[in-house]
């Protein structure tokens, strides 16, 4: 318990220090990329619990993000709703007016996403592998179509004018919390039970693991952080619309995970950072080469080649540690 609190204090102070440092010395563009990396880390690490540890292949992460983003924005943002019958625009002041409301709104968003995780998790438990992937993909699409039709959250227009609350401090703090809690989870009996389910569901059940319950809990955990990340992303972009959370977004997160090595926490973090920074770095290459669109072609090619030559991802299921580094370096102990 003490260690948890200590870690939290360390993380929060670290985030605070980094936020100050970034604000003072680092160019805004770089800060923005760092912020996006932080959000990507939350997404990849939380999906790693569902896909990597528990082995449940989910393609619905963007749906949970959308729920988190919309619910938190609903509390922090001034809504302007056009009544399509009378032509009047109804203005509603934010429910949580002021910066204090940001974290509560984020948490409510996360909880709403977690509730959706429960709703999705319970019925889809019976499904395995590809079928589960498709069902979760369907769930994500349903969320998007619903949001596209809810006039009260702007329908296809989305919600503009989210307040500027997603500072590096909050993004890094939540990324830290997400990573630390995942480490604890991985080492707990719960985490080990999830791995058991991944390795052999039937055997796990025979060993007395309550498979159904744990699977749902993994879903809820992943969905909660996806919702948080959605809320953070919304407040960073300061506008949200259903199209931001399409199924390509889910795929992006899965690719981060697979790139780093499914089931490896550090792999997820590295994958998240690489796939956030790489497209930005390739932007200049594209500009120099005068081949608009080559960026995505390269991205796709890298993906295919990586899978062919290293299907287990960069780290496989191992974690990046000093020991591993030493072993990978030339002349190291094998």
């Amino acid at each position: 318990m003490h260690r948890t609190l200590l870690l939290l204090v360390v993380g929060v102070s670290l985030a605070f220090g980094v936020d100050w440092f970034l604000g003072e010395f680092i160019e805004e563009y770089v800060v923005r990329i760092i912020n996006l990396c932080g959000i990507a880390i939350i997404l990849a690490v939380s999906l790693n619990v569902i896909n990597g540890l528990c082995g449940q292949f989910s393609l619905g992460h963007a749906g949970f993000m959308a729920i988190g983003a919309y619910v938190s924005a609903y509390f922090t943002t001034t809504l302007r709703v056009l009544n399509t019958e009378t032509g009047e625009t109804v203005v509603r002041a934010p429910l949580f007016d002021g910066a204090w409301g940001f974290v509560p709104a984020l948490l409510i968003g996360g909880m709403a996403a977690a509730a959706a995780g429960l709703v999705v998790g319970v019925p889809t438990l019976r499904l395995k592998g590809d079928y589960l992937a498709i069902a979760t993909l369907g769930f994500g699409e349903i969320v998007i179509i619903m949001l596209t039709n809810f006039e009260s959250v702007g329908a296809a227009r989305g919600l503009p004018g989210l307040p500027n609350y997603a500072s590096s401090f909050w993004i890094l703090t939540f990324a830290w919390i997400c990573v630390v809690s995942s480490v604890f989870l991985q080492r707990s009996t719960f985490g080990r039970a999830l791995v058991a389910i991944r390795e052999n569901e039937l055997a796990a059940e025979v060993m007395g693991i309550r498979v159904a319950r744990l699977k749902v809990m993994a879903f809820i955990y992943g969905a909660f952080f996806a919702g948080l990340a959605g809320g953070l992303l919304g407040h960073l972009l300061r506008t949200i619309s259903p199209s931001t959370f399409g199924f390509m977004k889910s795929i992006e997160v899965v690719v981060m995970l697979v790139l780093g090595g499914l089931g490896s926490l550090t792999g997820a973090i590295v994958g998240a950072i690489v796939l956030t920074v790489l497209p930005e770095a390739l932007r200049d290459v594209e500009q120099q080469a005068k081949l608009p669109g080559i960026r995505m072609v390269v991205y796709a090619l890298v993906l295919i080649l990586l899978m062919i030559f290293r299907p287990q991802g960069i780290f496989g299921q191992r974690e990046l540690s000093l020991k591993l580094l030493r072993r990978l370096l030339p002349g190291g102990r094998k």
Partner: peptide, 18 residues
């Protein structure tokens, strides 16, 4: 410890969103 954390969170909230 809990008090310290609560206080620091409040403090950071106030300035974290500058």
């Amino acid at each position: 410890l809990i008090l310290a954390i609560a206080l620091s969170v409040l403090f950071f909230t106030a300035i974290g969103c500058k």
